[in-house]
């Protein structure tokens, strides 16, 4: 275990800003990308189900004119 205390850990030998700056932005990008893909998928599925319901509705209520 390299670190005497938590504050020692966050200080990161004086380079805390650079090390945590790198790791935090990387975490942000990865988590951000995951949420973006999930959002894209959810909105698409919602659209598709709406379209599906609409076509079902039209088929059921087709009035033979």
């Amino acid at each position: 275990m390299n670190w005497a205390s938590w504050s020692d850990f966050f200080a990161m030998g004086g380079y805390g800003f650079y090390v945590w700056g790198s790791f935090l932005v990387s975490l942000l990008c990865i988590v951000g990308e995951i949420t973006l893909v999930f959002n894209r998928r959810r909105t698409l599925l919602r659209q598709l189900s709406l379209i599906h319901k609409a076509t079902q509705y039209e088929q059921n209520n087709e009035t033979t004119s």
């Binding site: 990161m12 030998g13 004086g14 380079y15 650079y18 090390v19 790198s22 790791f23 990387s26």
Partner: peptide, 11 residues
């Protein structure tokens, strides 16, 4: 580099 080199683990 003391602790700064740990950026290597992501870079």
């Amino acid at each position: 580099q003391s602790e700064a080199y740990r950026i290597i683990f992501i870079h």
